[in-house]
């Protein structure tokens, strides 16, 4: 089953996966919050490209019918069209993607206001100190020796 045709037919899926994993690597390995969002965007765009490539038909063209000078649709039976449904779904996904990105960026601005940093390591350090102080205060309020 593994032959040259199979590899050529599936190569584009694997290339999209390479891009997707680059985005995932940025999200996991980098601590800066803005950079994490950029990584998520790369991941997201790769998924879009993957999805659009499923709708591509060999020899097909963009799903727009030709019109004559009066604006009436002239169907040309010799043309094949790519599947328009993935295009519509991905149009919706792009707009929803920018909405979630803007929400994430607003959260980053609020985090910076509270913690004065947008590096994940520093934020975790401050969080640990705060929770240590909390449990200390809680312990002494309960009459413990902590």
């Amino acid at each position: 089953m593994i032959n040259v045709d199979f590899i050529i037919g599936h190569m584009n899926y694997w290339l999209f996966i390479v891009l997707m994993m680059t985005g995932l690597y940025i999200v996991v390995a980098r601590g800066n919050l803005v950079k994490k969002i950029v990584g998520l965007n790369i991941f997201q765009t790769s998924v879009f490209m993957f999805y659009i490539s499923i709708g591509k038909v060999t020899g097909g063209t963009a799903p727009i019918y030709p019109v004559d000078s009066q604006g009436h649709i002239q169907v040309d039976p010799s043309l094949t069209y790519s599947n328009p449904l993935p295009h519509v779904l991905i149009l919706t996904a792009i707009v929803v993607g920018i909405a979630t990105t803007s929400l994430a960026l607003a959260l980053i601005i609020r985090i910076r206001e509270e913690y004065d940093t947008i590096e994940e390591d520093d934020i975790l350090k401050i969080e640990r100190e705060l929770s240590a102080q909390d449990s200390k205060a809680h312990g002494s309020a309960m009459g413990g020796r902590a």
């Binding site: 765009t45 490209m49 659009i52 709708g55 591509k56 790519s82 991905i90 792009i94």
Partner: peptide, 17 residues
């Protein structure tokens, strides 16, 4: 996206992304 026949997606991605 243009080479994959998705012209509408292409201009949305260029404008929004």
């Amino acid at each position: 996206f243009v080479t994959l026949d998705a012209v509408d997606v292409a201009f949305t991605e260029a404008a929004v992304g």
